[in-house]
Simulated scan of single mutants.
Amino acid sequence: MQVDEANELVTCSMDDTLRYTNISKKQYSASDVVKMDFQPKSVSTAAGGLTLAVCIGQIVLLKDKKKDGKIYLYSVQGNTLKAEGQTLEAKGAITDMAYSNDGAYLAVIDDKKVATVYTVADGYSVKNEFYGHHAKPVTLAWSPDNEHFATGGMDMMVYVWTVSDSDQRIKLPDTHRLHHVSGLSWIDEHTLVTTAHDASIKQWTIKY
C-alpha cells in the first residue's frame, strides 16, 4: 500500500483491484476501484497522478486512476528493451494483444469492446476495427492461417473474426454458460479450444 499526493491510500489486493481510499474521510466509492486483468502483487505512486501496479503477467501504469489506452512499441536489443518512440492509440484500456503467427498483424482488444488489427509493415496502420461484444473482451488468439482470430469476453461470447472483412464474423454464444471465457487456443485453423472458470475445456469446429 502507498499514500499518493492527493492524500489517498492506494492498495492492491487478491481481488484483482486497486483501491483509492480518501484518508481524511476514511471511505472509498465504487468509482475509486480499478479492476485489473491479473492479480496485482505490488503498487507504487508518483507525482502527476501516476500509479504503477505490478501484476502477475503484466505491469500496468495508470494516470489519474485510469489506464492510458496506448500501446508502446519496443525493440529487443541483447538483454535490454529499447523504446521505438512510437505509440499506438486504442479505444480504451487494453485487455489483451497478440501478433499473428507470421508477424504481419497486431490484434488488440480493449475495455470499450473493440478489437483493432494493425498492419505491422505499414507502420502499424489500422487494418480493421471489429465490434460485437456486449461486455469487455478479455482474451484473444490468432488462427494458424493468420486470416482469422478469436476473441472471448465477459459477455460469455466468443467471436471468430476475418481480418480482411470486419462484417464477416462467426459468433459462439454462451460458450461457457454463467462464466466468462478466460482462455482461447487454436489446434488448427478449423479447431478452437475455449476455457472458463466453470472448470471445463471445450473444443469447437469452426466452418468459414
Rank of each mutant, 00 (worst) to 15 (best):
K91E: 03
L61A: 11
H134I: 03
G78Q: 11
H148F: 08
T51V: 15
V108M: 01
F130G: 00
P137Q: 04
A104F: 09
K26R: 15
F149A: 05
T21Y: 11
H180V: 02
L178M: 10
S143F: 02
D145E: 09
V76A: 13
A93Y: 02
V10M: 04
V108H: 01
T139E: 07
K202Y: 05
A6H: 12
D96P: 05
K41F: 13
L18T: 04
H190N: 15
S182G: 09
F149C: 06
F38M: 13
L172R: 00
S75Q: 14
S42W: 11
T139N: 08
T116D: 01
V193C: 10
E189N: 15
D198V: 09
E147I: 07
A47L: 10
K25F: 03
L106K: 02
V126P: 01
D96K: 03
K82A: 14
H134R: 10
G69I: 02
D68C: 14
Y159Q: 06
H133Y: 05
M1W: 11
T139A: 07
K65G: 06
D122T: 11
S166K: 15
T162E: 10
L62E: 00
T191H: 13
S125H: 03
I94E: 00
F130P: 01
W142I: 02
S182N: 10
I201D: 01
N7P: 04
T195V: 14
I71W: 00
T162F: 08
G152V: 02
T11V: 12
G69Y: 01
C12A: 08
L178T: 14
T80N: 14
S143I: 05
D96N: 14
H176S: 05
S24D: 10
I56N: 08
D110F: 02
I187G: 02
L192M: 10
T51L: 07
A6W: 10
W186H: 07
A115R: 00
D15V: 03
K127Q: 13
E8S: 08
P137L: 01
L61N: 10
T45R: 03
N128S: 13
A93M: 03
T194G: 03
Q86T: 15
A135M: 08
V76T: 12
I206G: 08
I56Y: 09
D16V: 08
G152K: 00
E147L: 13
I206R: 05
Q58R: 14
H179D: 10
S166T: 06
K82I: 14
L88H: 01
G152Y: 00
N146L: 05
I206D: 03
L106F: 04
S125A: 13
P40S: 14
A47I: 07
C12L: 08
G103V: 11
F130H: 05
D145W: 06
Y124F: 15
V120H: 06
V117G: 00
A83P: 07
Y20S: 04
L106G: 02
V43C: 07
K127S: 13
T195P: 02
L81G: 08
Y72K: 15
T21A: 08
G92I: 00
Y124L: 01
D37R: 13
D122C: 05
K67C: 12
I56H: 06
H180D: 04
L88E: 00
G153S: 04
S29T: 15
N128E: 13
N101A: 10
F38S: 15
T21I: 14
K41E: 11
D174Q: 12
L62N: 02
T151P: 05
W161A: 00
L81S: 09
D155F: 03
S100H: 07
W161F: 10
